[in-house]
C-alpha cells in the first residue's frame, strides 16, 4: 500500500504501471486521476492547503477502512498540495483486486472519503481574484451510500 502526500508532480501513467506490474492474483486494477480543471475559464492555478499530520492519518484510516471492506490486493493514494497549474494531476487512487467489482467500488469509496474527510482545502486563483472552493451537499450525500 502506498500513500503519498506531496507538493511535487507525479506521473500517473508511470504510477499505474508500477502499481499493476508483476501481480499474479490480481484480475482487476482500477485507477482515477483528478486533474486541475478550468471550470469557467480564467483559472490561473489551484492552491491546495492541507493539515500536515492529520492528512496522512486521515488517508491512512480511509485506506484501512477500504481494505477491511473489500478484498483488495493493494491500493495507492497520491494527493498533492501547493500551487497547481491547470491541466496537472492533483491526486490519484488505484485499487487492485481479484475481480473488478471490488476494485471499482473501493476506488469510488476512496474518492468519496478523500473528498470530504481528508483535510485538504482548494482555492481557485483566477485572473480576477481568488476564492475557496466550497464543499457541496452532494459531497456529503456521496458518503451515505457507504
Amino acid at each position: 500500500m502506498k500513500v503519498a502526500v506531496q507538493e511535487g508532480p507525479f506521473d500517473a501513467g508511470a504510477e499505474l504501471d508500477a502499481f499493476s506490474h508483476g501481480r499474479q492474483q490480481v484480475g482487476a486494477v482500477v485507477s482515477f486521476t483528478g486533474i486541475v480543471r478550468d471550470r469557467d475559464g480564467g483559472l490561473v492555478r489551484m492552491e491546495i492547503e492541507h493539515y500536515p499530520g492529520m492528512t496522512e492519518k486521515a488517508i491512512g484510516e480511509i485506506a484501512e477502512a477500504a481494505r477491511a471492506r473489500w478484498d483488495l490486493a493493494d491500493l495507492l493514494v497520491i494527493h498533492r498540495y501547493g500551487a497547481l497549474p491547470v491541466g496537472q494531476p492533483i491526486m490519484m487512487v488505484a485499487t487492485a483486486a481479484a475481480h473488478r467489482r471490488a476494485a471499482f467500488e473501493a476506488a469510488e469509496y476512496l474518492m468519496d472519503y478523500l473528498k470530504s474527510r481528508a483535510p485538504f482545502w482548494k482555492k481557485e486563483v483566477t485572473q480576477t481574484g481568488a476564492h475557496w472552493v466550497e464543499a457541496t451537499p452532494e459531497d456529503e450525500d456521496a458518503l451515505s451510500r457507504w
Binding site: 493539515y51 492529520m54 481528508a118 485538504f120 482548494k122 464543499a135 459531497d139
Partner: peptide, 10 residues
C-alpha cells in the same frame, strides 16, 4: 484544536 471549513479534497 483545529478549526477549518468543510474539506474539499479529491
Amino acid at each position: 484544536v483545529a478549526f477549518f471549513p468543510p474539506m474539499t479534497g479529491g
